[in-house]
Amino acid sequence: MQWHAFESPVHDSQRMFRQLLSAMSEPGTLAAVSDITVRHILPPAGSAVGAAGWATLLTLCDLETSVWIAPELNTGGLADALTFHTGARMAPSAAEADFALVLPATLSGQAPAFREGSDTHPDRSTTLVVVLAELEADGPWCLSGPGIADVRNLDVGQGGEALMTRLAANRARFPRGLDAILTCEERLTAVPRSTCITQVQIEEGVSCMLP
């Protein structure tokens, strides 16, 4: 079993962080974790997490953070590989997680109760790292708010309703809320809690309208 990490931990994680920072500050823009960002990044074989998700975890996790991994995603020794490379602890429950590696389906139905922070310390909240099967610009989800000049559209694929509905609910609880880094293979984007999310019907050709 091979557990690959960054070839150059200092510079690869810096470039990866900058990509995350610009994704978080310009929600909905797609970026790719190419060879320019991180060379030869390989997630543990047999795990469903892609290059972008794996590089995100390697960049942000260390022995001060606790990570919760959705059971369906914890395959191919993913948790062991992450602990081995970063020293991150596995959170015993979602409510104690700094980072949570989830599928969009994790947020449907009886979703785990992630930390949303408090009104005085909204930063003490879980950051979701979502593993998606599809992630495209120009979809039915219309984003606006800080970091977006006008509006930006996003497609998170089939079964993304639960995820986007959960993230849309952030706005009502602001400043408490969940921030999400959406990943799909080598692509990533971010949807912080400050983003306003609405769904538009693209079949009818209705263009994205500001709420």
Binding site: Q14, T59, L60, D62, E64, D123, P192, S194
Partner: peptide, 28 residues
Amino acid sequence: NFAYLDEQTKRMIRRGLLKAVAIPGYQV
């Protein structure tokens, strides 16, 4: 280390920066 700070400290600040961007104007 590159840019003086150790990697552990940089990661801590980087996590803080992502939260700061997500909650504009809030002091982390």
